[in-house]
Amino acid sequence: MTTKHQGRGAVRPAALGLLPVVCLVLGVLLVVVAINRQVPDPPRPASATSAVDAPAGRGGQTGPADRAGRETAAPVADAGKTAAPGTAARGTAAPEGTALTTGPQSATAPGADVGPETMAALPAAEPVSVRVDAIGVDSPLHALGLAADGTLEVPSGALVDQAAWYSGSPTPGESGPSVLEGHVTGPGGRPSVFFELGALVPGDRVEVDRADGSTVAFEVYRVDSYPKDAFPTVAVYGPTPGPELRLITCGGEFDTTTGHHVDNTVVYARAVAADS
């Protein structure tokens, strides 16, 4: 130990001695605040924990964090209850529900089970807005088409935080799967319109207002998550016997090299009579 500075230390005012302590406390406080203000990861569908996604799950996210955002402190014990979306709620025949729902082919074939009274198809009318009360979504809708590479265009510019309807798909209420999409996050990582989509569970309601003044109610029967590079085109966009709805957003790990999330969260719903 050197003794060079001994003299100077002695004349230092007492207040100066407190400075390091103040710095330390303030600094730690700032770090803690900054960390606590982070936007959490979007909820993942419960089924995403099975098969395909399980190995990719990160700490604390592999559990059924689905409803944690809405129902305070959802216990992990809910796993068994929510692990088979689309099958458990209405008792469709799917003995291996969790394993099947991650594949492109599922036992929960659209229209195959008996739920609330399903609705007859309506004539075409473009959708104007969508509401999902369970996750606080109420958004106007605009029409989007396909990009030059055949992929679905996504909301951008002033409409980036609104949900959109794919104009190449049936209008909501027509026979077939009507496709609605929305961003999970916007620039900078802040939550966007479909941030909570993965928290939906079978039985939740989605309502779509149409340009002809009618409102079509849909009931969620399946929520799933797929790697984008293994997107189950036929399951999501394939023909359905009656009016259905698909809500699509992103989820899963964020790949910093591509600048995109690696998964898509897809909510499947079918039209039900409004008062059922």
Binding site: G168, H183, T185, K228, I248
Partner: peptide, 11 residues
């Protein structure tokens, strides 16, 4: 549409 949907803004 082809493939998945790029509905993520940022991480």
């Amino acid at each position: 549409p082809s493939g998945g949907v790029q509905t993520g803004g940022a991480s």
